[in-house]
């Protein structure tokens, strides 16, 4: 019996086959195909190897360097600047003891997470419209002239930041709220007995208990630093602001699928993938070292 149970069950492979075919077609073959970053892609016949030609072109291109800078700035805003906001949100929400209010706030603020960026872009374009948008109506009330944020180079990155916050503030606070509710109430009770004030309780109980969650979230986000949110940027950019919001993924799309510079675009993808891989592996190791939990 023991021997029987050790024997491999080959019929299990049948169950795995559909997933394997999917991985092969949508992941493995395309990954192997990225070798064309070192070739000049030809539609017919063999594509000749050209070494690092496309990478040299890439790094010599001012457009690409601008794209890289944009990606880093936008990612910095959405990962580092945004980082404390859901924590503050969860801390405040945790103080709301009225169950009805709490549920209302939660169900309202989680909702935008489930809307597509197409929908959110539509909503924000309307909301920021210089002629009929809510924000400019508000500016009017304070006697300020209307402003067209969507086509304003100095404002558009903040529009990305604000819309990301609008979409993710509530949803991203869930993980902190869960950590907060798991803090043992006895800790607070004994602090009460010691006469600790609200600030002291925050500093010596709440924040230390939240720290592991904060570290995990931060490190894991760092692993995706080069993404910067394709769907958001793709739907919120326009010709007036493209120079400041064009990120790696939108650039790869434009030069690859629109301009059909297949090998050049793949080189940019490979560059992004290689850096991304290093970041993800570093995030994985860092997270494992600090919290004992990695990405996988």
């Amino acid at each position: 019996m023991a021997e029987l149970s050790k024997r491999k069950d080959w019929t299990l492979l049948i169950l795995l086959t559909p997933a394997l075919i999917y991985f092969l077609v949508y992941h493995l073959i395309p990954i192997a195909g990225m070798v064309m970053a070192f070739q000049d892609y030809r539609f017919v016949g063999k594509s000749p190897f050209v070494g690092l030609k496309h990478f040299k072109m890439l790094f010599a291109s001012p457009a690409f360097l601008q794209v890289l800078v944009n990606t880093l700035i936008i990612s910095f805003m959405k990962i580092v600047l945004f980082f404390p906001l859901p924590i503050i949100f969860a801390l405040m929400l945790n103080e709301v003891r009225t169950s009805f209010l709490r549920k209302f706030i939660q169900s309202t603020t989680y909702l935008p997470h489930f809307l597509s960026w197409v929908v959110i872009a539509g909503i924000w374009i309307a909301f920021l419209s210089p002629s009929s948008g809510g924000v400019n109506q508000l500016r009017g009330i304070f006697g300020l002239p209307p402003r067209d944020y969507m086509t304003d180079k100095s404002a558009i990155r903040w529009v990305l930041f604000a819309s990301e916050t609008w979409r993710s503030l509530g949803w991203d606070s869930i993980i902190y709220l869960a950590a907060l509710t798991s803090i043992s109430p006895s800790l607070y009770e004994s602090a009460d007995l010691d006469g600790a004030g609200a600030l002291q309780k925050m500093r010596f109980i709440t924040l230390p208990e939240l720290l592991p969650t904060m570290v995990t979230v931060f490190i894991l986000n760092m692993g995706f630093f080069l993404n910067a949110g394709f769907d958001q940027v793709f739907n919120m950019m326009n010709d007036s602001v493209i120079s400041v919001v064009d990120i790696l993924d939108t650039y790869v799309y434009r030069i690859g699928l629109l301009n059909m510079q297949y090998s050049f675009s793949t080189a940019a993808s490979l560059f992004k993938g290689a850096i991304g891989l290093v970041l993800i592996l570093a995030a994985h190791q860092g997270s494992r070292k600090i919290t004992g939990k990695g990405l996988w």
Partner: peptide, 15 residues
Amino acid sequence: VVMILEPALVTEYLV
């Protein structure tokens, strides 16, 4: 591997 390696948009498109 599938989780951490992202295929290029162009190569996925061509496949």
